[in-house]
Computed example of a mutant assay.
Amino acid sequence: YDLPSPGTVTNWAKIYRRDGEDGLRPKKRGRRPVARENPVLESEVEQLRRENERLRAEVAYLGKLRALGSQQRR
């Protein structure tokens, strides 16, 4: 069977006894993917950013309105 070493079958037998067929199935290799931010949390952050932008615009508008009102009183 051209196995790399005689211990390979011994290792397979140990894994099979411990984990069953699932233990002998191929495993994913390589680096794990980078954990991405939770979509629910991401949408909440985006919602808060939009609200923050709207409130800043509102504050700027009210500030200009107040300045205009004080100029007209003079």
Rank of each mutant, 00 (worst) to 15 (best):
Q47E: 13
Y1T: 07
E42S: 13
L68G: 05
S43D: 12
G69Y: 15
N52D: 10
D19F: 05
G20W: 00
D19G: 00
E42N: 08
R50Q: 14
D2L: 06
R32Q: 11
K64I: 12
R17I: 04
E58G: 02
K28E: 15
G30V: 01
A35V: 14
A60C: 05
L41Y: 10
G69C: 12
S70G: 04
E46W: 09
V45C: 08
R25E: 05
L62R: 14
R54M: 07
V40D: 15
E44L: 06
K28Q: 13
G63K: 10
R36Q: 15
G7I: 05
A60V: 08
K64G: 13
R25A: 08
Q47N: 14
G20Y: 00
G69R: 15
Y61C: 09
D22R: 13
E46G: 03
G23K: 02
A13K: 06
R32K: 12
A13Y: 08
L48S: 09
D2Q: 09
A57K: 11
Q71M: 09
T8S: 06
G63P: 01
L62I: 10
D19S: 04
T8G: 02
S43G: 01
Q71I: 04
A57M: 07
V59K: 10
S43W: 07
L68N: 10
V34W: 04
L65V: 14
R54Y: 09
E46I: 12
A57T: 05
L48H: 09
E51G: 00
Q71G: 03
V45D: 07
I15R: 04
N11E: 08
R32F: 05
L48N: 06
A13T: 07
R50V: 08
E42A: 15
L3S: 09
R25F: 03
A67V: 05
W12A: 11
E58N: 06
K14F: 08
Q71D: 06
E37H: 03
A60L: 10
E37R: 15
N38I: 01
Y61P: 02
E44I: 11
G23R: 04
E44Y: 03
T8A: 09
G23L: 01
I15G: 00
E51N: 10
P4N: 01
E21Q: 08
Y16P: 00
V45S: 12
G20I: 00
R49W: 03
L41G: 11
G63A: 11
P26Q: 03
I15M: 02
R66E: 15
V45L: 14
V40I: 14
V9S: 06
T10H: 08
L24Y: 02
V59T: 01
D2W: 02
R31K: 14
V45I: 15
Y16D: 05
R18V: 08
E42K: 10
W12M: 10
L41H: 14
P39L: 02
L65G: 04
V59F: 06
E46L: 14
E58Y: 09
S5N: 07
Q72A: 15
G7A: 05
G69W: 13
Y16H: 04
E58C: 00
R56T: 11
R49I: 02
E37Y: 02
N38C: 10
Y61E: 13
L41F: 11
N52P: 02
L3H: 05
N11D: 11
L55S: 04
R54L: 09
A35E: 11
N38E: 04
L62C: 03
I15H: 04
E53H: 11
